[in-house]
């Protein structure tokens, strides 16, 4: 592989790995405080799965970039992470010392983000099965076996919240609106995707997945009777809100600074140490 191709593939793998890692990190925050004890256990497994998937992608990237998975996952500078910004915000509620609610999100946002991201990731991994880079296609095959259960979990919650009248439905609708620009930001290309497509390593660019995703999301909105935040116009889509981009370039929001500080806190105490 030519050096520029290796570097573009490494960068692309980091993008996927970072998406999975950051969603896994944020979702793992529900461990111990989910709405039901049963769901607590289930949701924690989903979070662990995502981190397990991230680790597989980091291992592939580490082979190309001559480093190791932990160094990639926890040892980079904050603006060298390429996840979509929608994944970095916390969905668990946050309280101040007096117990007052101070930001964060709620279960509707956690469920909606995970499900709609999983629908995106399903399209992405489906395409990656056709990558000519055999280690990637092989890893993705395993990962998809786990992801199909995530989708089932997602549909079940999506339907449950949408079909409950009152607060649950209002919150789910609110989550959809709040997340929409960020979700559209998932389709921002990573640098070098054109090169990867022309080399046959990627079947198509991330941006090309968007319309299929919109179609699927609309299907799930229609089935649940939820307002779909965009409109179909003839052959295309009218997107009223600008997508929230920058994540794929390493530009992130304040939620990322906070998460990064936590993620690397222990490691930074003694950077050369074995933990």
């Amino acid at each position: 592989m030519r050096a520029e191709v290796t570097s573009a593939l490494g960068r692309y793998l980091l993008t996927i790995a970072d998406d999975e890692l950051i969603l896994g990190y944020r979702d793992s925050e529900w461990t111990g405080i989910a709405p039901l004890v049963e769901e607590d256990v289930a949701f924690s497994s989903l979070a662990q799965d995502e981190i397990g998937h991230a680790r597989l992608y980091y291992m592939l990237a580490a082979d190309l970039l001559a480093t190791d998975a932990d160094e990639l996952a926890l040892g980079r500078e904050p603006d060298d992470y390429y996840h979509a910004t929608v994944l970095e915000t916390r969905t668990t509620p946050k309280y101040d010392a007096s117990g007052a609610h101070r930001g964060g999100g709620d279960w509707a946002r956690a469920v909606a983000r995970r499900f709609l991201y999983d629908l995106f990731d399903d399209l992405r991994t489906e395409a990656l099965l056709r990558s000519s880079y055999a280690p990637l296609a092989g890893a993705v095959q395993k990962i998809r076996r786990e992801e199909q259960y995530h989708l089932r979990h997602g549909v079940a919650w999506w339907r449950a919240l949408a079909s409950a009248d009152g607060e649950a439905r209002v919150r789910l609708e609110g989550a959809l609106v709040a997340l929409w620009p960020g979700l559209l930001g998932l389709f921002e290309d990573a640098p070098g995707e054109d090169l990867l497509v022309s080399e046959g390593l990627l079947p198509h660019r991330t941006a090309d997945l968007r319309d299929a995703w919109l179609e699927r999301v609309q299907g799930h909105c229609d089935a649940a009777g939820l307002p779909f935040p965009s409109e179909r116009t003839g052959a295309g889509w009218s997107i009223a809100v600008p997508p929230e981009v920058g994540g794929r370039q390493g530009r992130h929001g304040p939620a990322w600074t906070e998460l990064y500080d936590d993620m690397t806190m222990v490691r930074r105490l003694e950077p050369e140490a074995v933990w």
Binding site: Q48, D49, G52, H53, L56, K142, I143, R145, E146, Y149
Partner: peptide
């Protein structure tokens, strides 16, 4: 089987 024993190492 995949549900009960997921393929990725744990």
């Amino acid at each position: 089987a995949y549900f009960l024993r997921p393929p990725i190492e744990r």
